[in-house]
Amino acid sequence: MRSLASAAYATACLLCLQGCAGWQSALDPKGPAADELAWLIWFFTGLCTLVWVLLMVTLIAPLLMGQRGGTEPLALDIGAERRKLRMVGAATALTAMILIGLTVLSFFANRTLAAIGSDAALTIRVTGHQWWWEVRYEDATPSRILTTANEIHIPAGEPVRLLLTSTDVIHSFWVPSLAGKLDLIPGHLNVLDIKADRPGVYRGQCAEFCGAQHANMGTFIIAEQRTKFDAWWNDQLKAAAAPASEEAKAGAELFIKRPCVMCHTIRGTPAGGRVAPDLTHIASRQTLAAGTLTMSRGNLAAWIADPQGAKPGVHMPMVELDGDQLNQIVAYLEGLK
């Protein structure tokens, strides 16, 4: 029985520790902001554990010591009362010192976080929608301003400034491995500075309940070497690729004739909708529907045919298409890389 209990305890510990790593864990930092926050979390946790242990010892010790025999229960021991008063005073002073110390630590941590983006060369505006992320890369040259969706590419090892806002309700942007969470508020602009120490893919999530599909409002920050990032940006600035096959050409014509054109933009075509994600290079993304589905021909077809089936409550309407028409549109969108 004892060995079974030990095995169960070890298994429970391992399961708990699984939450301390991975691409969406605040305890697995991959950037200076996350490092500072993780250190603060561990320090607060250790200190609070120590305080709890001391408090339990203080409470349990008198119970174990018991009442000394032969003493009158109602008799007042002046010496003991003074010792108790000194203990309470010392505990009060220690509590005040701990609170002041934690406040000072928080202040210096905030100062460190604020300094991360002081020399940021790249500014990205992230706008929250129900339920996806609009990503706009700012640039002094208007022709180099880029708008995409849900995936945020950044150069590894360089600070990046994110300008956060929303068009509908309050959302919250959180990529635990890179930075803390910050709200996106309609009509207000918040600033979040991030930096990825090394190339990689870091998953983020909306951390503020924002409606039916809050749980399916994910994002990915893709950090890559500067040369690779510049090449990606230049490719994304290009207009949509012309359809290569007859099926794709038929899909392009069908896309323009159907309601899709009222919501989505595909640069280089008459499609100029602004209320849904830009699809100019949709096939270059890793996921669909803000991280809900992995990018594949089958998932693309399923998403177009029945968006409510994959993401109930999403604002994308169902468009009536027969099998051939669906395959044509999918063939067209697959070529938008």
Rank of each mutant, 00 (worst) to 15 (best):
A223W: 00
C206Y: 00
P159F: 05
N216L: 11
H171T: 09
F173Q: 02
L164I: 03
G180V: 06
H188N: 13
E246R: 15
D168P: 00
F173M: 05
F220Q: 06
D235L: 07
G200A: 10
P199T: 04
E138R: 08
M217L: 12
I221F: 13
A156M: 07
D230V: 13
Q213R: 11
N234I: 03
S172Q: 14
E151W: 01
G187L: 04
S166D: 03
D197V: 02
R203C: 00
P243A: 11
P243T: 12
L192S: 03
M217D: 15
Y137I: 00
G218K: 14
A241E: 12
A156C: 08
F229T: 07
P176C: 13
I222R: 12
D183W: 05
D235C: 03
D139I: 01
A239P: 06
K228S: 12
I152W: 01
F229H: 15
H153T: 06
G157P: 08
F229V: 06
A149C: 10
T165A: 00
L164T: 04
T141N: 15
T147G: 04
L164F: 02
G211D: 02
D193K: 01
D230H: 08
F173S: 03
Q213G: 13
K228Q: 14
A140I: 10
L184W: 02
R203Q: 12
A223Q: 03
S143T: 13
P159I: 09
C206R: 02
P155I: 11
P159K: 05
I152C: 02
I222L: 13
A231S: 07
G157Y: 09
K195V: 11
D235N: 10
P186E: 06
K238P: 04
A140Y: 06
N150Y: 04
I152K: 00
P186D: 06
A223M: 05
V191K: 15
E158R: 10
E224P: 00
F220L: 14
L146M: 06
F209S: 08
A215F: 08
A240P: 08
V169K: 08
S172H: 13
T219Q: 01
F173Y: 13
A196H: 04
V201R: 09
D193M: 04
A212G: 05
V169N: 03
